[in-house]
C-alpha cells in the first residue's frame, strides 16, 4: 500500500478532483457490500440519534414485571412480555430499549476515539515521515514499542488507573489505536515527500508545517477516510471488550459490551441477554468494515486487493 501513488494525482485542479470524486462514487455505487455497509451505518446513526423516540421504554427503568418470580429475566415469548419485545435483562429492564440506546455509547466511543487516534496518528506519522532523520526514527521506534504492547492489557491497565467513564474509555482506545494510523501515514508520507509538488513547495520556501498541512495532508485523505472507517469498527469492538472486562461505560448507561458482561452469567437461563447485544456489535463492526473496504476500493483503485 505504501508505494502506490495517491490517486489524487499531482497538482490537481478542482475540476479534476471532482472528476475523481465522481469516479469514486461510481465505483462505490457498484460495490454492493459497501452499499449495504453504508446503509446500515446510516441506519445506525439514525437509531442512535433518535433513541429517545425509537426506544419503547426508558432504558434505565427496572420493571417489576420485568423479572420472573425467581428473579430471572423475562423472555420475549411469555405473554407477559408483549411489552418487552426482546425480553428483559437481569434487572428487569427492556432489552430492546437498551440495545437502541447502546448504539449511542458504541458510536460515540467509536467515532470520538477514532478522531483522537487519527489526530495523534496523523500528526506523529506525518511528522516522522516528512522529517525523517533521527526524529522520525525516534517517533517510529516509539510507535513500534507501543504496538508491541499487548493491546488489551494496556487498555485494562490504563482504564484501571484512570477510573472508567465514557471520556476515559475514549482516551484509552484512542491511545491504543493511533499506532496503526501512524505507521500507515508514515509510509505514505515517506513516498509523497519525494514527489515533485512537494519539492517545488520546498523550493519556493514553504515551511515544513505548511507543506505537511497544505500539500501532503490532502493526499492522505483517502487513507485517512479508509482507516478512519475501519478504525470505528475496531474501536466499537475494543469498547465492547473493555466493557466486557467490567471497565467500560458506567451503569446505568447501556453499552453493548457491558450488556454482555452483565448478562453472561445468564447465558444458559436467558441466552437472549448475550445474543442480541453481541449481534448488534457484530453487525455494526461488519457494516463499518464493508464501508471501509468499499471506500478503499473506490478511492484507491490501484490498491492491490
Amino acid at each position: 500500500m505504501t508505494s502506490q501513488a495517491s490517486p489524487l494525482g499531482e497538482a490537481m485542479a478542482p475540476q479534476a478532483s471532482e472528476t475523481f470524486l465522481a469516479l469514486a462514487w461510481r465505483r462505490f455505487r457498484r460495490n454492493r457490500p459497501a452499499l449495504f455497509g453504508a446503509v446500515f451505518v446510516l441506519l445506525l446513526v439514525t437509531v442512535a440519534a433518535l433513541a429517545p423516540v425509537l426506544a419503547p421504554h426508558d432504558p434505565a427503568e427496572q420493571f417489576s414485571a420485568g423479572l420472573t418470580d425467581q428473579g430471572l429475566p423475562v423472555p420475549s415469548t411469555l405473554p407477559a412480555s408483549r411489552e418487552f419485545i426482546l425480553g428483559t435483562d437481569q434487572n428487569g429492564r427492556d432489552l430492546l430499549s437498551r440495545i437502541v440506546w447502546g448504539a449511542r455509547a458504541s458510536l460515540t466511543v467509536g467515532v470520538l476515539a477514532n478522531g483522537l487516534a487519527l489526530g495523534i496518528g496523523v500528526l506523529l506519522g506525518a511528522t516522522a515521515g516528512y522529517l525523517g532523520g533521527w526524529i522520525g526514527n525516534a517517533i517510529m521506534r516509539f510507535t513500534d514499542m507501543m504496538m508491541a504492547f499487548p493491546t488489551l492489557l494496556l487498555a485494562i491497565a490504563l482504564a484501571a488507573i484512570l477510573r472508567p467513564s465514557l471520556g476515559i474509555i475514549i482516551v484509552v482506545i484512542g491511545a491504543v489505536y493511533w499506532t496503526w494510523i501512524a505507521r500507515v501515514v508514515y509510509g505514505e508520507v515517506m513516498a509523497i515527500r519525494e514527489r515533485q509538488f512537494v519539492e517545488s513547495a520546498r523550493a519556493i520556501g514553504a515551511s515544513s508545517g505548511r507543506i505537511i498541512f497544505w500539500h501532503i495532508l490532502p493526499h492522505l485523505m483517502p487513507t485517512i477516510i479508509v482507516w478512519g472507517t475501519l478504525g470505528i469498527a475496531n474501536n466499537v469492538m475494543l469498547e465492547a471488550a473493555l466493557s466486557y472486562l467490567g471497565i467500560g461505560v458506567q451503569p446505568p448507561t447501556p453499552s453493548w459490551g457491558g450488556m454482555i458482561q452483565q448478562g453472561q452469567n445468564f447465558y444458559r437461563a436467558a441466552p437472549w441477554l448475550v445474543i442480541y447485544p453481541g449481534a448488534a456489535i457484530m453487525l455494526t463492526v461488519l457494516a463499518f468494515n464493508l464501508l471501509g473496504d468499499g471506500l478503499r476500493d473506490a478511492l484507491d483503485p490501484y490498491q492491490r486487493r
Partner: peptide, 15 residues
C-alpha cells in the same frame, strides 16, 4: 465492585 452480580444490585439501589 464490577464483578457480577454486584453492579446489578447497585443499579437496583440507583433506581
Amino acid at each position: 465492585i464490577s464483578t457480577d452480580p454486584q453492579p446489578k444490585l447497585a443499579e437496583s439501589i440507583q433506581q
